[in-house]
Design a protein around this nucleic acid. Sequence first.
DNA 1: CCGCATCCTCATGGATACTG
DNA 2: CAGTATCCATGAGGATGCGG
Lengths: 208, 208
Amino acid sequence: MPKRSYGQYCGLARALDVVGARWSLLIVRELLVGPARYGELLAGLPGIATNLLAARLKELEEVGVVQRTLDTGRNGVAYVLTPWGRELRDTVASLVTWSTPLMISGPQGDIFHGRWLVVALDALLRDRRSKKPMTIGLSADDAMVAVHADKTGTRVELCGDNQPNTVFRGEPAIVLGLASGMLSVEQAVAAGELRGREADLAAVFESR
Amino acid sequence: MPKRSYGQYCGLARALDVVGARWSLLIVRELLVGPARYGELLAGLPGIATNLLAARLKELEEVGVVQRTLDTGRNGVAYVLTPWGRELRDTVASLVTWSTPLMISGPQGDIFHGRWLVVALDALLRDRRSKKPMTIGLSADDAMVAVHADKTGTRVELCGDNQPNTVFRGEPAIVLGLASGMLSVEQAVAAGELRGREADLAAVFESR
DNA sequence: CCGCATCCTCATGGATACTG
DNA sequence: CAGTATCCATGAGGATGCGG
């Protein structure tokens, strides 16, 4: 909701009037993982200026995408997505899926947070009806894992090499509890599968 | 592809690095309907500055979303989406679907082009597996039409009132050739259903 | 005329300092 | 910790110029 509206009676244009501003969808990405404090958002959005985060949060709140809530337990406020805001999960997922050609080149010096895997894996694994076989690679600690998914199901393999972008090989194994269908955002967060290892995870990509 | 990259190894961030700039997705919207000349894009994107359109087209071409082609027939260049660019149809559709709460208030002075209906109707009617019943309203010339879609199928009704945002009523009729499943982008364009009446169509919205 | 390139102004974004 | 305030850099909007 930059003051700059496109002024077009078109769904796409109006949607972009609301979430098309720089950083807006990335804030939504952070909140798709779960409620977050201001400081956590700052940490999860490396590169954002603090005044911009404050401004975006205010805008997103005014238009009904984000809501400020009381953070019971720790005292203070936490930001949460409204039900309508949560529906942006589809949009975020489609962009993540679309971006795979941009991801296969590896990090290239870009910052990585394991937290982002929650959204990325959710997007890539969510609709297995699209039968396209895919391989998702990720490295955690000193191990590298490949998740192969096709119409026959999902297999997880341990790879010998730790470098991102490696050609996968190695013997099958079950690692990190990754299994077909378990990685809805809510499940992954609830299971705590990723929480503790966020700092260790290093790369995700899909080859197709 | 603003020079400003988010610098994050995250699918969403990299996607937004490519199509997150202002006007980029609206250009994609125009090209989803079909190839277009520079002047046609200018006309279809009211409010864009001509230098910005030129810049965006160059960026989108460099990253492989758009391609310049020879416009055989009329001599000159035409802009087309690459296969990868066409895959943004999913993203655009999800944003259009998400935007419906922003559309029910009506045009409110915003510009409207019937051409945009091709993308909007494609998005709203494309996946009838999501069984949510919906009503799409549109007015053409002096008639107002309601398309009701639910799990039982699609009905088209003619409404008595010409004003956008009217409560639908009236006797059933088939108007404009709107029928379930006929409105893939390609079909609508090929059938010329909308081409000739673009200037007449006035509103589309969904109530849910 | 179409397809841009240039120039100028101002809104928006980015970095950092500061405050309740 | 959770933001504001400030200042500078950058990108958008609008008018206009210009070559093919």
